[in-house]
Design a protein around this nucleic acid. Structure first.
Lengths: 98, 98
DNA sequence: TGGTAAGTTCGATGATAATCGAACTAAGAG
DNA sequence: CTCTTAGTTCGATTATCATCGAACTTACCA
């Protein structure tokens, strides 16, 4: 079960993370993944065009906020909780609370 | 010494905060205020047009991230640290570290 | 009472980004 | 092999936003 390429979290800037989460759709995706664990791309934004969802998933992945596992025709997204917590301490608590 | 109007922090959404800080210029302003304390509007973005700085200050203020005191012809901005910490726990640590 | 310095407001402009549909790729079922 | 399902890529469109200059307000100083 391979994974898509992901950036080194050490090289991600806080600005990039905040920009990624500053969009309402992506914040909703991120929160959904945090509470529900692991979800396929298609389950993330009900009602949106597939290409739109793909776009948001890419922005989140490139900001280091999600990991994507290739699982047949599906892409399973999850939040790398420990990695994020060590690189951006406070972020997950912030998103979970807000 | 009066203050400009500020929103109730309880009514601010996390999304609004993240959008405000997602811009590189505003993140820089916010960090500068965090480290240097209290600064006039004009000292925040060297080189920018005054109207640009005014714009960014308004976005930050409307997101509850700054308080503005009217001081003669100047507007002195500061970060309401305690208020932010209680409404958005983790945010200040996140910004300070990143 | 000028004059200056600090910000604001307004309208325009340019850049960035969100969204979509259509065509495509890849994997699995029958 | 064919069909379906999941997602990607591409190009176009639209909307949002960052930036600016010009005109204005306000406070303070000489």
């Amino acid at each position: 079960m391979e994974e898509l390429e992901h950036p080194d979290l050490e090289k991600i800037s806080l600005e990039q993370v905040l920009t990624a989460l500053g969009d309402p759709t992506r914040l909703e995706i991120f929160r959904k993944l945090l509470t529900e664990g692991c979800l396929p791309c298609g389950a993330l934004v009900p009602g949106a065009a597939k290409s739109t969802t793909t776009h948001h998933c890419r922005v989140l992945r490139e900001a280091g906020l999600t990991r994507t596992k290739i699982c047949g025709t599906q892409r399973l997204l999850r939040v790398p909780v420990e990695d994020i917590e060590s690189r951006f301490p406070g972020l997950l608590k912030l998103v979970s609370a807000g």
